[in-house]
Simulated assay, not measured.
Amino acid sequence: MKTPRLPIALQLAVMRSLRDKLALANQKLDRNYPEPKLVYQQRGTAAGTAWLAKYEIRLNPILLRENEQAFIDEVVPHELAHLLVWKHFGRVAPHGKEWKWMMESVLGVPARRTHQFELESVQRNTFPYHCKCQQHQLTLRRHNRVLRGETVYRCVHCGEALIAGSTN
């Protein structure tokens, strides 16, 4: 799917959310953290990523367009929290106690690690794999790594190695 052009009003709403949450954090933390760079280049099923060294937030324009308000309310503060935690505490666990504290106590947003957006429009081709307990779908990149013998993926539930093909 081609990346949709984002309406200016939507981009402004994202920027307003980012600036409001940053101002709130700066006030509560008694700091003056700068505004991060904001780009709309995230691809795949991730709604956004925080690039610590670049002090940059990358947002998925397709998921933003499809989930406007929920995206603004959840994803923008989620990624901002990663950058603020990095500035405030240094390198720590990505969704650890510091990030949870930043989300809930400082930014006033529930600390959810993953979004709940519909992904049909951004999912790529997947390949069926199975273990003892369930069916799995691997991305093309992971499937190719298995084919080249570079890795073995295991089920997080039963611990068994994933085997190509469906169980049917």
Rank of each mutant, 00 (worst) to 15 (best):
W99E: 08
I72K: 09
Y153I: 11
L84R: 02
R31E: 05
R124W: 11
P36V: 02
N26S: 07
G48F: 11
E104P: 08
G90S: 02
T151H: 07
L84F: 09
C158K: 07
V152W: 00
L147A: 10
Y33V: 02
V106E: 00
H130P: 07
S166N: 15
P4V: 05
Y153D: 07
T49V: 15
N67Y: 07
R145Y: 13
E104V: 06
K21F: 02
L38E: 07
D30K: 12
P110M: 02
R5K: 15
Q27P: 03
W101T: 06
E74K: 10
D30F: 14
D30C: 13
L80C: 05
R154T: 09
R43L: 08
E98R: 03
T167C: 15
M102P: 04
A164M: 10
E35Y: 02
T139A: 13
S17H: 02
S121L: 14
A46G: 09
R141S: 03
E68V: 11
I57A: 09
A70P: 01
R145D: 07
R112T: 13
P4K: 04
R91G: 04
P94D: 05
A53R: 14
R154A: 09
E118T: 11
M1E: 09
A46I: 00
A164L: 08
H136T: 02
